[in-house]
Amino acid sequence: MDILYLSPEFPPNYAHFVRCLHAEGIRVWAIGEADFYSLPAELRACIRWYARAALDRWERVEAAVHELLEIKHAQGFEGPFAWVESHNEAWLRLESWINERFDIPGLRRTDIEPLKKKSVMKRLFQDARLPVARGAVVASLEEALRLAAELGYPVCLKPNEGVGARGVHRVDDEAALREIFPRLTEDVLLEDWISAPIVTFDGLVDLEGRVVFENRLVYGEGVVDYAAGRDPFFYVSRRVPEGLAAVGGELVRRLGLRRKFFHIEFFDRGADWVPIELNARPPGGAILDMMNYSIDGDLYRAWARILLGRPPELPAAKKYAVGYVGRRDRPYALSHGDLLARLGGRLVEWGENPPLFWEIMGRTRYLFRAEDEEEILALGAEARREG
């Protein structure tokens, strides 16, 4: 099997996907923006051929795909690529365009709107008879003022197309709305501000669209708070409530995903789950690694095996809850060395995040696990205490 992988260099942990594809006997042909020789040697060894192109310039990507196909055929591997993948929100449209242009199975451009535009996601949620935040796309300050007056403050302003907390604003009164709205340059959605814990339903589907792995991530606060400077804390839970699995599973079914990861965010209001957004990709940053640590398994390998129609071979039991703390450049009650000592054998990973992640995920990450979720909460609080 030959697959085309987009951006094998970022984020750095996604190199494990390429490594596992290679280990399963799949030939990986890649297009990325980095110089090939800047990639780690282990990653370079797993790529059959690499073409460098700016991924936001589709005509250059098209030329790169033709180049790889010519080389592939010259080496005796006939036919098109069997799959195109990036696991990255930024390249979903590009992925679907390559699939259509070169007649490759997978997402089509008509599939992308529900995965990118929050207003279209909301219609999908409503079709599934789920509660949603009241609101609509607003095209002018006058529309925004009218809708905010109808909903009542505070309200939430966010890009209709965007990832995570970037560009999301809590607006507490009319004066703030008049100040913020004129600065916005994108299609904007204005909604009720919902104050409730945020959880996610994440997982992986196989060739038939069956969920073969599911996960719940619980945020300590919200990503808006992290973007505002709060140290991020969240954890992978050992349990997925039946109601969340049912609601999340129905949304996955309606999307018709195959051979894909998914990541769906919800407000947890106790009596119901209010969907926020959904994505056809793994959750970001180190969360995929956290899910691996929770089961002592390998989701990178599981996905590669699914491409080949093989069983994913994932452990059934969630043995651990896994916590994440991201710290910034400021003083803490526990120094770095003190924190490592405090975490002890529960620490499974620490390191510096890529600079692109610093605003939301913190500069230095600490991943730790325990059987008891209360222990994860206590360690997370200690790690973030300033001093």
Rank of each mutant, 00 (worst) to 15 (best):
P8T: 11
E9L: 03
F10T: 14
F10V: 12
P12N: 11
V18M: 02
R19Y: 13
C20I: 04
C20A: 14
I26E: 12
I31Y: 07
I31A: 04
G32L: 12
S38W: 15
R48L: 10
Y50N: 09
R52C: 09
A53M: 06
A63T: 12
A64W: 07
V65Y: 05
L69A: 02
Q75L: 11
P80Y: 03
E85C: 05
H87W: 13
H87A: 10
H87R: 14
E89M: 00
E89Y: 05
E89W: 03
W91S: 00
S96P: 02
F102K: 04
I104F: 00
G106I: 07
P114D: 07
L115I: 10
L115A: 06
L115W: 10
K116Q: 15
K118P: 08
K122T: 12
K122F: 01
D127C: 01
G135F: 03
A136P: 05
A136V: 03
A139G: 14
E142K: 08
A149Y: 01
Y153W: 09
P154D: 09
V155Q: 01
P159Q: 07
G162Q: 12
G164T: 13
A165V: 09
V168P: 08
H169E: 12
A175V: 13
A175M: 09
A176I: 06
L177Y: 04
L177R: 06
R178G: 03
R178H: 06
E179N: 07
E179G: 04
T185I: 08
V188T: 15
L190Y: 05
E191H: 01
W193P: 02
P197L: 01
D202Q: 00
L204T: 04
L207E: 15
E208C: 03
G209N: 02
G209R: 07
G209C: 03
G209H: 07
V211D: 01
V212C: 02
E214L: 01
R216M: 12
G220V: 06
E221Y: 12
E221N: 14
V224M: 10
Y226A: 01
G229Y: 09
P232C: 04
F234H: 12
R239D: 13
P241Q: 03
L244G: 02
A245W: 01
V252A: 07
R259L: 14
F261W: 12
F266C: 00
G270R: 02
A271R: 09
D272M: 00
D272I: 00
I276H: 00
N279V: 14
A286P: 08
I287P: 00
I295A: 06
R301L: 07
P311W: 02
G323F: 10
G326L: 08
G326S: 05
G326K: 11
P331T: 11
Y332F: 09
S335M: 10
H336Y: 14
G337Y: 08
L339R: 13
L340S: 09
A341S: 15
L343F: 08
G344S: 11
G344A: 09
G345T: 14
G345E: 15
G345Y: 07
E349W: 15
E352K: 15
P354M: 13
P354R: 14
W358A: 10
R363C: 01
R363W: 07
R384P: 11
E386R: 15
